[in-house]
Design a protein around this nucleic acid. Structure first.
Length: 431
RNA sequence: UCCUCAGUAGCUCAAUGGCAGAGCAUCCGGCUGUUAACCGGAGGGUUGUAGGUUCGAGUCCUACCUGAGGAGCCA
């Protein structure tokens, strides 16, 4: 049994291929069933005069997405998509899709509503499998990168007793008579792990119940969050840029065919070389105002601002030292300018916006207590978090990277919903 | 939550307030190199729901339902 993607290595040989009927083209006494197997597309050919009548008849009545196993010789043929063709000699039909109930997704155009309702079938399309191949490479690259850097995986819980940051709207669940919430970030737990392991990361699903309705948002998405003891802001920026460069490099190495299916121009990806530009928030505000934005110092960057800024660079840009007032309570203030926080956001090029957000964390117990109070957060909810500052506190920090946004950028997609097998958005939880 | 838009055949879409249509899909027929094949024919409809205006509503009005695009918030 040979995967379609590897048939180029079997020219001249007789092979068996298992898969599904993608399409069937017909021209008189000539049939062209197109098969897919998840690795690629294969055109088979059947000449009526070269095969028994039963075989010809059997192939002729194949319907889209019927599951089959075929046998035949592979030969190079420039006329076939993919460059190789199978001279079909034998077929075993596992399931013939009945013509009375045809496969709903045809090779023609469909609207997004219909496709999302049929997401479980839409995944079979060339485009969707290509995206999932890229996603797979991105995740492999992340895990290999951290492994190579000596990080130890320590996943954070998904069920949590209270808000991690106290800002987002959370999904509430009933937990044996108590209220619990789906995690919006593993960060606080990752900090505990970092003080145990030195360098650690967690990687899992994250939930936001905000009623966000844009092409950049999912209610359930995957986030990887490294956390490093003794790290300062510059160390975090250095880590983040190398992580992203490693991901891009991996995708360019392993996913060229997928990028081609997606018609993704790879030149912007090839331009992503170290180092990435660093821009202080102050400089970002100047640049934006010069470019016509109405934003003022103190405002957070809006979506349009992010796009405007990222289009000024050919690689991801890191914006650091935002006003502390606009940021989370746990961020370490800059000792030289307490009104800004030692934090960084990485904006992807081509208008894809924020893919990384991180900071150095407050390591002083009394300062952290003060910040909790200023943010009206109850100290009892953060008792264990404060403990991390009572015994062996060190400067430390980390960041979160949203996998789906990275995949959307790399694949050049219009909308993030195609980057995850079963997207969860504000108005959609099925299939 | 706010703003905008859409809902007609399995799918993608047309239809000036006046007979509800086309392409694709499905079925039948034709074609010995097709490339979302092509050519000919057939079947397929409670126009999202409920009201209203009108001689007459897919079309106009009101409410609701479902979804999409954007804003805010964020990864």
């Amino acid at each position: 049994m040979v995967a379609i993607a590897r048939l180029g290595e079997h020219i001249g040989e007789e092979v068996r291929v298992r898969g599904w009927v993608y399409n069937l083209r017909e021209s008189g006494k000539l049939l062209f069933p197109i098969l897919r197997d998840g690795s690629g597309l294969l055109q088979a050919v059947v000449f009526q005069k070269n095969v028994p009548p039963e075989l010809f008849a059997q192939v002729r009545e194949l319907t889209q997405e019927s599951s089959v196993e075929v046998r035949g010789a592979i030969r190079a043929d420039a006329r076939a998509p993919g460059g190789v063709e199978l001279d079909l000699r034998e077929i075993s039909v596992l399931q013939l899709v009945p013509a009375s109930d045809p496969y709903p997704i045809t090779p023609k155009e469909h609207g997004i509503d219909f496709l999302m309702d049929h997401r479980h079938l839409w995944l079979r399309s060339q485009r969707q499998t290509a995206i999932l191949h890229v996603r797979h490479q991105v995740i492999r690259a992340v895990r290999d990168f951290f492994d190579g850097e000596g990080f130890v995986l320590a996943d954070a819980p998904i069920l949590t007793p209270s808000a991690c940051e106290g800002t987002s709207t959370l999904f509430e669940v009933e937990y044996f008579g108590e209220k619990a919430y789906l995690t919006q970030s593993g960060q606080l737990y990752a900090e505990a792990a970092a003080l145990a392991l030195g360098k650690t990361y967690c990687f899992g699903p994250t939930f936001r119940a905000e009623k966000s309705k844009t092409r950049r948002h999912l209610t359930e998405f995957w986030m990887v969050e490294p956390e490093v003891a003794f790290a300062q802001l510059d160390d975090l920026m250095h880590l983040a840029e190398r992580l992203v460069a490693a991901i891009i490099s991996r995708v360019l190495e392993n996913s060229r065919p997928a990028l081609k299916v997606l018609e993704r121009d790879s030149t912007p990806l090839e331009a992503v070389q170290l180092p990435f530009p660093r821009l202080s928030y102050d400089d970002a505000v100047c640049r934006l105002q010069a470019a016509g934005s109405t934003m003022q110092w103190g405002d957070d960057l809006g979506g349009a601002d992010e796009t405007l800024l990222s289009k000024q660079f050919d690689r991801p840009v890191m914006v650091h030292r935002y006003p502390a007032a606009a940021k989370a309570f746990y961020m370490q203030p800059d000792p030289e300018r307490p009104e800004v926080a030692l934090c960084v956001d990485m904006l992807a090029p081509e208008g894809y916006g924020e893919i990384v957000g991180g900071s150095q964390r407050i390591h002083d117990l009394e300062l952290l207590r003060r910040r909790l109070e200023e943010n009206h957060l109850a100290e009892k909810d953060f008792r264990w978090y404060l403990d991390l500052r009572r015994w062996g506190s060190v400067p430390h920090g980390g960041f979160g990277m949203g996998i789906e946004r990275v995949v959307a950028w790399i694949c050049g997609l219009e909308h993030i919903r195609e980057t995850i097998p079963f997207p969860r958005t504000i108005y959609r939880i099925t299939p």
